[in-house]
């Protein structure tokens, strides 16, 4: 295996409405400008809210497949605690995991039919060397708007990346409406330092 081995895969997962697709779009633009070939792909539910959502960003000198195989994800960025566990087949012993330690209950939990699984963080820490957990939604709220949790998560992801911090911020600035830029840069910094 030559080129394809050097492909880096970031998998964003969470619940519809959390800004996962946008986070994937922003990372794709960043890595393209950093000089990589990139493919970005997403799976979103039929309706607009509540279902599982995932977005893959793969970059390297040459990327063929927009989808990784199982075991091939380098960094899992999960926007909801339990959702992290749905994608462990895609990870390997060296994968890094970034988790928004926040819960969104699915309908069956609200109805009292099933428990929300506990010990999620313990499972993650047992199997993966680098687990970064942060309260991204709460941090976003402090930064001015809880909908910026995706920006906080991008900040946290950026701290694992060798790509220049300035480039992350440059793309963020361009991707956002002007009046939201300042708050989002604050949210990004909070995530990066977390």
């Amino acid at each position: 295996m030559t080129d394809s081995r050097k492909v880096t895969t970031v998998l964003f997962v969470g619940v519809g409405g959390q800004g996962i697709i946008l986070a994937g779009d922003i990372l794709s633009e960043i890595v393209m400008r950093a000089g990589y070939d990139v493919k970005k792909s997403e799976v979103h539910g039929m309706a607009q809210r509540g279902g599982c959502v995932s977005s893959h960003v793969r970059y390297g000198s040459k990327v063929y497949s927009p989808l990784p195989g199982k075991g091939d994800v380098d960094i899992l960025v999960s926007f909801e605690r339990m959702e992290t566990l749905r994608y462990l087949d895609y990870l390997n012993e060296k994968s890094a995991v970034v988790v928004n330690d926040e819960t969104i209950f699915p309908p069956s939990v609200n109805l009292g039919e099933e428990p929300y699984p506990d010990a999620v963080m313990e499972i993650l820490r047992r199997y993966f060397p680098a687990v970064k957990a942060l309260k991204a939604t709460e941090m976003a709220r402090v930064a001015g708007d809880r909908r910026m949790a995706n920006t906080v998560m991008l900040g946290a992801l950026s701290s694992l990346s060798s790509i220049d911090e300035g480039l992350w911020k440059e793309v963020l600035k361009e991707a956002l409406p002007k009046k939201l830029v300042e708050k989002n840069l604050k949210a990004f910094d909070m995530g990066r330092k977390a």
Binding site: M46, K70, G71, N92, E114, P117
Partner: peptide, 14 residues
């Protein structure tokens, strides 16, 4: 590559 023992995960349908 990794097969952790997992609790039952409630479905999250759209």
């Amino acid at each position: 590559k990794i097969r952790p023992e997992l609790p039952a995960l409630p479905n999250r349908p759209p």
